[in-house]
């Protein structure tokens, strides 16, 4: 079994029709993994930035980068190890739960209460992806009814 590594790629593409389908189609067609994918326009340009978290063996990762480059609307593929990478998660918790300790936990994970309703609160945390993993494990004791993760966003430094 070849060794699989996790890789964050920041891909700058022309912000035009169908560009996302070219990228997702490339991954699907060649059997590459997408662990997460986020996309948003880059302000004041005709470009968009995709942050793709993928995994594979070293030759596969090399092919992924080359195949991304090969797409006509691809401007740049940044694969440096020097990323600030953050992810966000939203967690809905019923009000019936005992919130003892939640406050401290939110503080520890850059969290806050994002919304609340008659019988629930929604907390939001933004942190490194592995710390989000940890938070989501820890928050289980409050019996969350819904969890949404954003996927990573990354900036090369």
């Amino acid at each position: 079994m070849e060794h699989y590594t996790r890789r964050v790629l920041s891909v700058i593409v022309l912000n035009e029709d169908g560009v996302l389908s070219r990228i997702s189609g490339l991954f699907a067609g060649r059997g590459y993994n997408i662990d997460s994918l986020t996309v948003a326009p880059i302000p004041k340009t005709n470009l968009s930035r995709l942050t793709i978290v993928t995994s594979g063996s070293a030759p596969v990762l090399e092919q992924i980068v080359k195949q991304l480059h090969k797409l006509i609307p691809t401007y740049k593929v940044i694969e440096s190890g020097q990323f600030v990478e953050k992810e966000m998660a939203l967690v809905k918790i019923p009000l019936a739960e005992d919130f003892n300790g939640l406050d401290a936990m939110l503080k520890a994970y850059n969290g806050t209460i994002a919304s609340s309703g008659e019988d629930f609160i929604v907390v939001m945390v933004a942190d490194d992806y592995d710390r989000i993993d940890n938070f989501l494990k820890a928050v289980k004791k409050y019996n969350p009814t819904d969890i949404v993760r954003s996927g990573s966003v990354a900036m090369d430094i």
């Binding site: 030759p59 090399e62 092919q63 080359k66 195949q67 480059h69 090969k70």
Partner: peptide, 11 residues
């Protein structure tokens, strides 16, 4: 001429 062709099958 295609960088993705290089190293795709063999190193």
């Amino acid at each position: 001429i295609d960088p993705s062709s290089i190293g795709k099958i063999v190193p």
